[in-house]
Simulated assay, not measured.
Amino acid sequence: AWKALTGLPEPALEAPARHESRPPASLAEDIHPLLRELTSKAEVARTQRDLAGVQTRANPELTIGAVRERDGLGERFGQSVVLGIRVPLGRSSASDSKIATASAELVEAETQLTLEAQRTRAQVDAAQATLRSLEAVQASAERRAVLARESRGFFEKSFRLGESDLPTRLRTELETFEAERQAARSRLDVDAAVSKLRQALGLLPD
């Protein structure tokens, strides 16, 4: 099913653990794909507005026609070509409509870009705050796991020497297991937060 869907060879059953690289600390609007697209739309709208402001006159018109006539009854028809050129000199009403339309499209594009940039910055800030919080939780969980392993080693030695009983040793084993499980889960949570931050920044997984 994997080969039929992706065309790739079958992956290993247990892929090695890997972590996504840490993204930059700030939002780069020239990298984020959505903001780049909206910026391009705003630039196109601005160019169209500027072009409409320059083209205030209607385009010149060239007229070509053929005339077939005769001077009198019974005479042969004569043919002539009529060439006409029309050069508008004043400002056309159509140009005002084009300028108004282009200006409205520019305002809409710039407003959409501003709103999307604000929304994206808010998402990035929230993702960064979540990542910082989970990193603090991970650091605490890692310290707890280290202490639990040290305590387990101490009680193992004490149990072998007959200085501690079996329930105490089993309790330390359970506490160590729980601490290591929590540390592993905190690492997964941090990796997920890094992935969400990269998505908020418009970066692809690596």
Rank of each mutant, 00 (worst) to 15 (best):
E37Q: 03
V44N: 11
A94V: 15
R86M: 12
H32T: 01
Q48I: 05
L34F: 05
R46H: 13
T111Y: 02
E116L: 10
L62F: 11
I85D: 06
V44L: 13
L34Y: 01
K41F: 00
T47V: 15
G78S: 07
G78D: 06
L35R: 08
R91D: 09
V82P: 08
T114A: 14
A94I: 13
L113I: 00
I31D: 11
R49F: 15
L34P: 02
V81H: 12
R76I: 05
A42F: 06
D96W: 10
S95T: 07
I31Y: 04
T63W: 14
S95I: 09
P60G: 04
R49A: 15
E29K: 12
G78W: 01
V67Q: 13
I99A: 05
E69P: 01
A66M: 12
G78I: 12
R76Q: 14
D50I: 01
R86S: 15
E105Y: 07
V54G: 10
V44K: 10
T114Y: 11
I64R: 13
R36A: 02
S97C: 05
G78K: 10
A104H: 04
T101G: 03
E105D: 15
R36E: 00
L73D: 06
G65N: 08
L35P: 03
I64Y: 14
L62Y: 08
P33A: 07
F77L: 03
A117F: 01
S40E: 06
K41P: 00
Q118F: 06
A109C: 06
E108A: 06
L89Q: 08
K98P: 03
I64L: 15
V81G: 09
A45P: 09
S103P: 02
L51Y: 15
V87T: 06
I85G: 09
V44H: 07
L83V: 14
I99K: 03
L35F: 07
L34A: 04
T120Q: 03
K41M: 01
I85K: 07
G84E: 14
A104E: 01
T56C: 07
Q118N: 05
I85P: 06
G90Q: 15
R57S: 07
I99V: 13
E75S: 04
E108G: 03
T101K: 08
T47K: 10
T120V: 06
P33L: 04
K41N: 00
L106H: 01
V81Q: 05
D30Y: 07
E43G: 07
L62G: 09
A66E: 11
S92M: 04
I85H: 10
R57C: 10
E37S: 07
R119E: 04
N59W: 09
K41C: 00
A66W: 12
I64S: 13
V87W: 08
L73F: 09
D50N: 12
L38Q: 02
E69I: 05
Q79H: 05
L38A: 00
E105H: 11
G90F: 13
Q55D: 15
E105Q: 12
V107W: 06
T47H: 13
A28L: 09
V44W: 12
E29G: 03
